[in-house]
Simulated scan of single mutants.
Amino acid sequence: MQLSDPTGFEPLAREIAEQLGAHHAKQDGESECVQIVFADGRVLNLTANRPRTRITVTAVLPEQAAAHDIEVKPITVTARPRPRPSETQAKATTRHSAEHIRQRLLPAHTAALAELRELTAPQPATLQRADAALSGFLDRPGGGVAISEQPVRRPLGLTARCAVAWWHTLDGPSRAVAPFMADALRRAGLVTTEPHGSGYVFFAEPPAEPSDTRFRIAPAAGGEGWDLVDEFTGACLRTYDDREWAHGIAESANGEEDAARRAAAASLDLPGLSADLIEDEQFRALAVGLATAGHIPYGLTDVDYTQTPGFHIYPSAEPGRVKVARLLEPWGAIRPGARFKAPEREVERYDKDMEAYARLLTRPGQTAAVMLDGIQVTYNDPLTKP
């Protein structure tokens, strides 16, 4: 069999894939390697060793495998086995290769993935740290903290067991509370991922050594496209159709991660809070109270604020006071006078929202008053900064 032509090698790989029960075979970009891809994401690389008419087959492992010294040695099979009676050379090569892959490579590949899955599973100590970090999120009649492990399908056959936290409501995980839970987990020394549009917060222990490639792209585990994967938590942030676009997003995310690491800040920004208030525990608690009551913090990229009003907390000129704005684009934003240009129905809705905010923010130790530009919260005993 002639293996010198890559276009002739791909049909052979497709025949081998069919024998193995794999999903499909495809050329790996511009390289001379052909990939056999299984439905669960496992990948085998087939390379023709032309001078000796042999085929080298390599089981592809996730990048985390190298950190745990897990490897699967490639196998080499002949492309010219002796055909059986009434069997062509091409059919003999397909049968011979599939048998060797099935017997010599696939068991080792499966065992390596299982070992990696166990080594990367969340540890009880990590779950306990998360539970302690979120203990300040007091249960409400309509919600409460939930923490568990969740299997996440990943490319290359690794179904990761990831640690996940969320604010549980009757309607499912709350998107409003997720940023504040993630912030609390980071302040406890954990790393977090908030998938786009999700109320789940994936978390894990930080790596022993800093990495410049926390975020990478991988073939989508659920179908066509490219996943943006957080190597630290195992979570997929979002799936993109275009590979180059996904690669650019990954580079940007790694740059933001580097900036946050150099700033030594748990949160460079936090929806619903002005940047200069993020490190104030009292104001964070104010935002958490609004979010756990079902109000949406302003600044989430996956929320339509033309339909859903959001809250934003910003400083007051007077000590011991803070302003809480209700934002609904294009009406009711912080912009001076915007409320007075709004349609009557929006003004009525604005006033009702403000009354609801004020009732929620009135509690022992603090009072809330409705002003023209939002809610003014006054602390009877404000926290003093060191």
Rank of each mutant, 00 (worst) to 15 (best):
340 F>H: 13
245 W>P: 00
323 K>V: 10
246 A>F: 07
384 T>D: 07
205 E>V: 02
372 L>R: 12
222 G>N: 14
52 R>V: 15
274 S>L: 06
343 P>V: 07
347 V>C: 12
105 L>G: 09
15 E>F: 00
371 M>H: 13
337 G>K: 08
72 V>K: 04
347 V>A: 10
266 A>L: 08
93 T>W: 02
260 A>F: 05
385 K>T: 13
348 E>D: 14
145 V>Y: 03
30 E>V: 03
377 V>Q: 02
8 G>V: 04
361 L>M: 11
184 A>T: 08
359 R>I: 03
99 E>H: 07
290 L>T: 08
377 V>Y: 04
258 D>A: 15
157 G>Y: 04
67 A>E: 15
81 P>A: 13
191 V>L: 09
9 F>E: 08
70 I>A: 07
359 R>T: 14
315 P>N: 10
119 L>A: 06
82 R>K: 12
230 D>I: 06
14 R>L: 05
211 S>K: 06
53 T>Y: 03
7 T>S: 10
142 G>E: 14
292 T>N: 00
340 F>C: 05
238 R>M: 11
111 A>D: 13
186 R>V: 11
323 K>T: 10
164 V>K: 08
60 V>C: 11
128 Q>I: 08
375 I>Y: 04
292 T>Y: 02
297 P>F: 09
224 E>I: 09
274 S>R: 12
278 I>E: 08
184 A>D: 08
130 A>P: 04
273 L>I: 12
3 L>F: 00
12 L>Q: 09
237 L>N: 10
193 T>E: 13
8 G>Q: 15
199 G>K: 06
316 S>W: 04
7 T>M: 06
10 E>R: 15
105 L>I: 08
69 D>N: 15
81 P>Q: 11
86 S>T: 13
40 D>W: 00
64 Q>A: 15
87 E>N: 12
118 E>Y: 01
214 R>M: 00
139 D>M: 07
212 D>H: 12
91 K>N: 15
238 R>C: 07
40 D>T: 01
252 S>G: 14
223 G>I: 06
67 A>C: 04
258 D>R: 14
2 Q>E: 14
12 L>D: 06
153 R>A: 12
148 S>F: 07
371 M>A: 15
353 D>P: 00
261 R>E: 14
346 E>A: 11
107 P>K: 10
48 A>W: 01
241 D>Q: 14
337 G>H: 03
353 D>F: 01
56 T>K: 14
178 A>K: 01
199 G>M: 11
370 V>Y: 03
164 V>R: 11
377 V>F: 03
47 T>R: 13
49 N>A: 06
250 A>N: 06
106 L>Q: 11
171 D>Y: 05
93 T>K: 01
28 D>L: 12
382 P>F: 02
244 E>P: 00
328 L>F: 00
184 A>H: 07
270 L>C: 09
300 L>S: 01
172 G>A: 04
151 P>R: 10
259 A>S: 09
126 T>W: 06
97 S>Q: 02
64 Q>K: 05
35 Q>V: 01
81 P>C: 10
240 Y>G: 04
211 S>Y: 00
220 A>Y: 05
99 E>M: 07
109 H>A: 03
238 R>H: 15
338 A>K: 04
33 C>R: 13
288 V>Q: 12
189 G>N: 12
